[in-house]
Design a protein around this nucleic acid. Structure first.
Length: 724
DNA sequence: AGCACGCCGACT
DNA sequence: GTCGGCGTGCTC
């Protein structure tokens, strides 16, 4: 019997002989431990064949980890289809979608009964395999004299428990602490016990030393946190259409809950924050499933029998026959996997639903361009109050007089304001005022960002993390005066503090998360932050949302930028569950369509326009697009590899180059950031309305010489405009 | 992905 | 002479 085993590695399935001495018949979908390289890895059986002749000296699999299949047939089919869709080995997708597949193992070995090996007398008894040399294990395996068994190590935790009854030899305090532990049963730590018993830590330590209490490993009971608040009321929609847009956040969740009441449903969320917030109010029974949970917990919940799962993309392969998949905020960038296969979770959900025959629904405030034409239900969007502040006319940078006036009203009325900045740190650029020198990252073609957390500044690369102290004088001309541009969180916070002394100003970004509790309590104040702020609950008295430089959220090089900008603006209108804060935008483009749509209460207009535009220009979803990224430390090597591939593809495409509705091949061009982490990057874009053509071209493409080639099979960000 | 192998430059 | 950087190939 041959097993076809898929490991969570960027490889196709590998072949193994069925485990020796295993009574059970091999079954597709079981997790199996196999020898791999010098160790043991866990994969999934994706095929079972009668020993077909092969010239490979196959090794035996060690053993199965499951009683029931970990992946079902539908899941395996899905995996295979996704791999084809994304031009990636199936194992890569397995690794991406089920990163918790491999549990810690107990792997034990012994010699087959009666066999003796000189020098290995104790190997007649089961022994942990990690104590033995992998080479020796392999040799014994090949000789057919090794028995192996493997099982999943049960998750445990350490806990402090009483070991002996109190005796006369204890001091009163020690006795009290021991009695406390006997009453509690167990304690998390020595400190916790000391606190609970009202004694000093030394008392507890003495009890441990005398052997009255001690640590023991106990099995860890795994369960998600139960929902916190009062459950929201599901809102049933008769004959629900595929798309539901508009409305307020709570209302959309009610509708999603109504959709989920129909039967086995996956409610897919773009990120953990939104998921946990929704789960906190979701009508039970429901199960949260996401990457913030420990791998042990996710493995434990994998087969849990809840009809509704609120999940991230990691729930997509759960062995369930979903009747419905509900995609929340399908336009969110967080659905794009940043590494590995670089899959897009919404595409995956669509494919999963198709293969299962499940109904698919998108529920979002402003629909993604990809879905805006589906039949939809439009709920009344949040009321908006929008104030564009035209930076071409208003004085003051980075804070106009108008903005200061607005902010001044915040403490006067006892309200709160949120200031959203696209950049963390002090400023995007630092330059010498006398000679124009600018610091650049040594590894990337990017200016170093200026951070000024205290008095002394630092220069930081936001791509590779390189960091150096900011110079006191210009290293080129010795000039002592520096200028800044591209205001960040720190700059704005400083500016607001000096313009409005006495106003509490908080900062909130990835690098500095002030405690926002005073704001949450309703105290007046301003918080300046990046979009990280959107993952915190809105302060209760929110009256103003100010974007000091709205275009900062509109990168010019990306065809999806207007859609994103539009979505962000609408998100601001829906931040507070009931209030409509004034949204003030300092901008050079006060009549941008996204700003107008927000003012007019229109959530679908911008996506519709964008869709028309993409059809005209040949962008997704009108075409399937793939970006080929060639990179190397040496610029010439990267460029040459990209040129060679372009040349090959030009020949390969032949007449289609002219016949295609849109030029199907573009580049090579330097990537929007031409050098990243010490590597030069060149892009080659392929596109066609017929996805099968892309597959054919790519399958013929010879591997590049010298340079590394990576595919982005579903580019979302940082795609330069095609210049025809 | 992770790891071994092998080739070329730098230095005790 | 060796150490060690990185490019290439392979994993049942």
């Amino acid at each position: 019997m041959h097993l076809s085993v898929l490991l969570p590695l960027p490889l196709g399935p590998l072949s193994y002989l069925a485990p020796e001495g295993e009574a059970r018949a091999p079954a597709v979908g079981l997790r199996v431990a196999v020898p791999f390289r010098k160790g043991v890895r866990v994969g999934v059986v994706v095929g079972v064949e009668d020993a077909a002749g092969g010239d490979f000296a196959l090794r035996h699999a060690i053993g199965y980890l499951d009683a029931e299949p970990f992946l079902d047939e539908a899941g395996l089919e899905f995996l295979e289809r996704v791999a084809a869709l994304y031009f990636a080995p199936a194992g890569q997708l397995l690794a991406d979608l089920v990163p918790f597949l491999e549990p810690p193992l107990v792997h034990e070995v012994r010699l087959v009964d009666g066999v003796e090996r000189p020098g290995l007398p104790r190997l007649a008894l089961w022994r942990d395999a990690s104590e033995l040399d992998p080479a020796l294990l392999d040799e014994l395996r090949e000789g057919g004299v090794l028995e192996e068994r493997v099982r999943e190590k049960k998750p445990t935790r350490k806990t402090l428990v009483p070991l002996r009854a109190p005796s006369e030899r204890l001091t009163p305090k020690q006795r009290a602490a021991l009695e406390t532990l006997r009453a509690l049963g167990e304690a998390e730590s020595q400190t916790a016990l000391a606190a609970a018993a009202g004694v000093g830590p030394g008392v507890v330590r003495a009890l441990v030393e005398k052997g009255y209490i001690g640590w023991r490993e106990v099995e860890l009971k795994l369960a998600p946190q139960p929902p916190a608040g009062p459950a929201l009321e599901p809102l049933p929609v008769p004959e629900p259409p595929p798309r539901i847009s508009g409305g307020r956040r709570a209302e959309r969740l009610q509708i999603a809950a109504g959709l989920a009441a129909e039967g086995e449903t996956l409610v897919l969320f773009p990120e953990r924050y939104a998921l946990e917030r929704a789960y906190g109010r979701w009508p039970p029974p429901a199960l949260p499933f996401h990457g913030g949970q420990s791998p042990e917990l996710r493995r434990a919940l994998w087969r849990e029998g809840s009809p509704v799962v609120l999940g991230s993309y990691q729930a997509l392969l759960m062995p369930r026959r979903w009747r419905r998949i509900v995609v929340i905020e399908e336009g969110s960038d967080s659905y794009k996997l940043a590494s590995g296969s670089r899959a897009h979770a919404v595409r995956l959900a669509e494919l999963r639903a198709e293969l299962l025959g499940a109904s698919l629904h998108y529920v979002s405030l402003s629909p993604a361009v990809e879905v805006v034409e589906r039949p939809g239900l439009l709920l009344r969007p949040p009321r908006t109050r929008v104030l564009p502040i035209d930076l071409r006319r208003e004085r003051g940078w980075p804070l106009t007089g108008r903005a200061v006036e607005l902010l001044a009203q915040v403490p006067e009325k006892g309200r709160q304001a949120l200031v959203l900045v696209a950049r963390r740190g002090y400023s995007g650029r630092l330059f010498c005022k006398s000679c124009d020198w600018q610091p650049v990252c040594p590894n990337c073609d990017l200016p170093l960002r200026f951070h000024k957390p205290g008095r002394q500044g630092r220069l930081v690369c936001h791509q590779c993390g390189h960091s150096e102290p900011a110079p006191e004088v210009c290293p080129v001309c010795g000039g002592e005066v520096f200028g800044y541009s591209g205001p960040g969180v720190e700059w704005l916070a400083e500016k607001i503090s000096s313009a409005l002394p006495g106003l509490p100003v908080f900062q909130y970004s990835a690098e500095r998360k002030d405690d926002l509790a005073p704001l949450q309590r309703g105290e007046p104040g301003v918080v300046v932050g990046t979009t990280a702020l959107l993952r915190t609950p809105a302060p209760p008295e929110l009256a103003l949302v100010l974007l000091p430089y709205a275009e900062g959220f509109l990168p010019a090089s990306d065809f999806r930028a207007p859609e994103r900008y539009h979505r962000l603006l609408w998100q601001l209108a829906d931040l507070h569950p009931t209030r409509s804060p004034l949204i003030a935008l300092q901008t050079f483009e006060p009549d941008h369509p996204a700003v107008e749509a927000l003012a007019e209460g229109d959530v679908t207009g911008v996506p519709e326009t964008e869709l028309a535009l993409r059809r005209m220009l040949g962008y997704p979803p009108a075409v399937r697009m793939v970006v080929l990224e060639f990179s190397h430390r040496q610029e010439v090597t990267a460029r040459a590899a990209a040129m060679e591939a372009a040349e090959f593809l030009r020949k390969r495409l032949g007449d289609y180059l002219q016949a295609a509705p849109f030029p199907p091949l573009f580049g090579p061009v330097p990537a929007p950031v031409p050098r990243l982490r010490g590597r030069y990057v060149f892009h080659l874009l392929l596109r066609s309305p017929e996805p099968d053509r892309l597959r054919d071209w790519l399958s013929d493409l010879p591997p590049p010489k010298g340079a590394r080639l990576r595919l982005d099979p579903d580019p979302v960000g940082f795609v330069g405009l095609l210049a025809d």
